[in-house]
Design a binder for these strands. Structure first.
Lengths: 346, 346
DNA sequence: GTTAGCACTCAATGCGCAGGAGTGCTAATA
DNA sequence: TATTAGCACTCCTGCGCATTGAGTGCTAAC
């Protein structure tokens, strides 16, 4: 026995129905559907087959059927069609995205908010990761006795800075000279290796300034690495609308899992290797998300993937719609960011 | 009839009991308590009086009594005693507070985390508000053709920065000169007035650079004002442990109120005028928090109040413990921050 | 003023029963 | 041979009802 055309049609109908209603689908409701000219008995036979094949499950004997993870997998791989965004949905996204581009963190926050508002699921977003960026410019600015500002600028046009201590005898000219040397020597060096390279390559040369160098390098590293594992999260409570989470304990498990953002961070980092990813129910590594699905997309600056965002919802999810929304958002984010660096680079 | 000593003793006992058990307190359980040598009948009479006075409520005729908001108010104002922190609690707080002081946002995040971990309620924290700080230094750093970084440093030692566009013909020397002039002229000027003052006092003088000035001033304003209304939130799901929120709809209301951080932001801003504040149940302005209590504390840098943090819990809250925890945290934060500026100022 | 005793109230719990949605199987039908 | 009508069966769901027990208020005695 195998999955013929009619079985696929029926399976699709069951998934559609279940996604809408959240309750087990009976044979009668399918046979009454537009486009099916089969009696409920025939559907029943087919459903029994689909169950045997592992695409359907029965909560108990006298209930209808619900799709299994395997069914959703089949659905997203072969049966699903994208659902274009309505003008309304586009409008919702647009009204959320108001931040200026140079405030990346807040852009990502708004991305998450827009996604959760438009999908009614939980949304998350990873800010751009700078470690793979390259150094464009480094500048030390004297502030006052004993303090200076160190500013690094990446090839993607973003700046990070930190106030650092400097030796009392260090003058403006020396800082200026150092800025020039560091910029010249370490331009195009990747941000994640710069700290080490500065110390090994300059440590001996500037032996008497070693402590200062160390200081500076540490400050840069702190600002550039995603130390805090930031994940912008929005709409966690959206999940409480769905009958899957009518039970407080279920809700607690889910909310606790997303509140401790480590799980999400790891998932997104893993997904950042892929343009899009869909993880269904039991495919999730995290125990608490075994009856959720996670859909992610990765945005780029130019050719370089920079960060990932996505949504979490019940396995019973509107995959088509969600994918379209993510695709739209990926496109506009990537475009915005890419234009930004093009402009930066002239 | 008035509140004599015995009534107060009984009321305290009922509150203690109810805070522990979350279920209506009967006369028997009080009469059996250590220290009471009264029969349940006597307690019943007293309880009837307390109800008449508005300190107790009865969910239904054959249930015990629960304390009213008025009772809690009385309790925190007159009956409560602080509960010293256990070494364990101090340790929990310490292990959470690991961030460097110059990364204020992450310090506040950790403050909220520590508070929620140690109290098992929901915690929130407002980062320092810079508008009342004074300018110490302003620096324009040339980045490359058409761009510069503007950095402002406050008397409290914190730096904010933004990338701005500059006219193509603007050279490094001009930026340096401008930095010196701006710093000299507007040093000690309050951050919330600086934008306006720069425009009125320099606008004519630097007529040909007016557009640029405007640009710069706007960028500063964006970074300095708490536009994003950031509230660090932690442990929202802690509330789901309490029987008050066994119903998903209750939970949803609470979590939604807390997720849209505006309510919290406003509450904290209002509370920032007070060293400590306790708001009980119906005293809350926000409808969704009418059966929560909010306890806040304000931390300072030197003499200046800088921000506020606090916890939200069910009205049935361990007020004594919570106040002690907040007091401890207020002290250590204020101390840390004050030392920080002392050091900055030499 | 305090307490023992008692009748009363009312939410919570458990049980049984009817209703209904849905199934699988069989036999008839096209 | 595939489809379908029919039917017995399963099992969740909701409802009504009686039972239980914690707690009360009141009265009368101490």
């Amino acid at each position: 026995m195998e999955l013929d055309n009619r079985k696929i049609q029926i399976l699709t109908a069951i998934i559609d129905e279940y996604v809408m209603s959240a309750s087990p689908v009976g044979s009668r409701s399918i046979s009454k559907r537009e486009g099916f000219h089969l009696s409920s008995a025939t559907i029943r036979n087919e459903m029994a087959d689909l169950e045997e094949l592992g695409y359907l499950e029965q909560p108990h004997t006298s209930a209808g059927r619900i799709p299994s993870d395997k069914a959703y997998r089949m659905y997203v791989d072969h049966m699903m069609h994208r659902a274009d965004l309505t003008p309304d949905e586009v409008r919702i996204i647009r009204t959320h995205m108001t931040s200026r581009l140079d405030e990346v963190e807040s852009v990502m926050k708004q991305t998450a908010q827009a996604l959760s508002a438009v999908t009614n699921y939980t949304a998350m977003a990873l800010p751009p990761i700078f470690v793979r960026n390259r150094l464009k410019h480094i500048q030390l600015v004297p502030l006052r006795e004993g303090r200076a500002l160190v500013v690094v600028i990446t090839d993607t046009g973003f700046a990070r800075d930190a106030v650092i201590r400097i030796p009392d005898d260090m003058q403006a000219e020396e800082l200026e000279r150092l800025s020039r040397i560091l910029t010249m020597r370490f331009q195009d060096c990747r941000m994640d290796t710069i700290a080490e390279r500065i110390m090994t390559e300059m440590g001996d040369e500037l032996f008497e300034r070693r402590a200062f160098l160390n200081n500076m390098v540490e400050a840069i590293e702190r600002k550039v690495t995603p130390e805090s594992r930031t994940v912008e999260l929005s709409g966690a409570t959206n999940m409480l609308h769905y009958p899957e989470y009518a039970d407080v304990n279920k809700a607690k498990l889910f909310l606790t899992a997303v509140e401790g953002k480590d799980t999400l961070y790891n998932m997104l980092r893993k997904a950042s290797k892929l343009e899009f990813s869909i993880t269904i129910g039991g495919e999730n590594e995290s125990e608490e998300l075994k009856d959720c699905s996670v859909v992610t997309a990765t945005y780029r600056m130019g050719d370089e993937p920079m960060g990932t965002f996505g949504i979490i919802g019940p396995t019973r999810m509107q995959y088509g719609k969600v994918l379209s929304v993510l695709e739209y958002m990926q496109m506009s984010l990537s475009e915005m960011l890419t234009n930004y660096i093009e402009e930066e680079k002239h």
